[in-house]
Amino acid sequence: MGRISRKDVERTAELARIDLSESEVEGLTRDLDRILEHAQQLAMLETEGIEPTAHALPLPTPTRPDRPASPMDPERALGNAPLREGSAFVVPKVLDGEEG
């Protein structure tokens, strides 16, 4: 143990916007520690000056002419909205303070 602490797991869960129960924090601390322990073997490899690979088959970023195309029908795009109003998705308030 020791590569990752409960505190690390709690901080990471905060970043990922996932709430964890006490027992989930415990289980994940153990699991992630084991996984990272195994990943530690990579540290032994000499990679000085080796280019990182982001994509296996490097391609130039494709471009296309900047011309408008027909958009998806808003009714279809909103079809899965948990809550909607007209052609807008409705979410709970984002900022604290007075109602605008």
């Binding site: 990272l36 990943a39 990579l42 540290a43 490899l45 990679t47 080796i50 280019e51 990182p52 690979t53 982001a54 296996a56």
Partner: peptide, 13 residues
């Protein structure tokens, strides 16, 4: 971790 893994990905290729 992440950058190291991307470099090892190059070695695997």
């Amino acid at each position: 971790y992440y950058k190291k893994a991307q470099q090892v990905r190059t070695l695997v290729r």
